[in-house]
Simulated scan of single mutants.
Amino acid sequence: MLGLMIDDRERQELEYLLKREMDEILFDMKDARIDHIVKRAMDERYKILFSLFRRFASHKECLKYMKNSSAKKEKY
């Protein structure tokens, strides 16, 4: 296990970068021109980024980025 010491400003920056990257992946996943093999790799990357994001973000923020979450289904 590795540790990481960061201050609040750095945490906010990491959270921001993770959000933007996950948004890009979610946007690209909707593109029908992208091959399913590439989409599978993008999905794996998303899972890794989301697991990092969970360490920084609040529960409410995590719910926004959960794929196929029951919370989203209940909301809509």
Rank of each mutant, 00 (worst) to 15 (best):
M1C: 04
M1W: 05
G3P: 00
L4C: 06
M5D: 11
M5S: 12
M5W: 05
I6V: 15
I6P: 05
I6E: 14
I6D: 07
D7F: 06
D7A: 08
D8Q: 13
D8N: 12
D8G: 04
R9Y: 12
R9T: 11
E10F: 06
R11G: 14
R11E: 15
Q12S: 11
Q12N: 13
E13M: 09
E13Q: 13
E15Q: 13
E15M: 04
Y16N: 13
Y16F: 14
Y16V: 02
L17N: 15
L18A: 07
L18W: 04
K19M: 15
R20L: 14
R20Y: 11
E21N: 08
M22F: 08
M22C: 07
M22H: 11
D23L: 03
D23T: 08
D23H: 06
E24A: 13
E24G: 07
E24C: 01
E24M: 11
E24S: 12
I25E: 04
L26D: 14
L26T: 10
L26E: 14
F27P: 01
F27Q: 12
D28E: 14
D28M: 11
M29D: 13
M29R: 12
M29F: 04
M29W: 01
M29N: 10
K30R: 15
K30D: 14
K30I: 02
R33Q: 08
R33G: 13
I34M: 07
I34W: 00
I34C: 04
I34A: 09
D35H: 12
D35G: 05
H36G: 00
H36P: 04
I37T: 05
V38T: 13
K39D: 08
K39W: 03
R40E: 10
A41K: 11
M42V: 00
M42G: 02
M42I: 00
M42D: 01
D43W: 01
D43K: 14
D43P: 00
E44P: 02
E44I: 09
E44Y: 03
R45E: 08
R45K: 14
Y46D: 05
Y46F: 15
Y46E: 05
K47T: 10
K47C: 03
L49R: 03
F50C: 02
F50V: 02
S51N: 12
S51C: 00
S51F: 00
L52F: 01
L52C: 01
L52E: 08
L52D: 04
F53M: 07
R54M: 10
R55Q: 07
R55T: 05
R55C: 04
F56Y: 13
F56P: 00
F56R: 03
A57E: 02
A57W: 00
A57K: 01
S58Y: 06
H59E: 14
K60L: 05
K60H: 10
E61H: 06
E61K: 08
L63E: 13
K64P: 00
Y65D: 09
M66H: 06
M66P: 03
K67A: 07
K67I: 14
K67F: 02
K67D: 03
N68E: 12
N68A: 08
S70G: 00
K72I: 08
K72Y: 09
K73R: 15
K73H: 09
K75W: 13
K75E: 15
K75C: 05
K75A: 10
K75H: 11
Y76C: 03
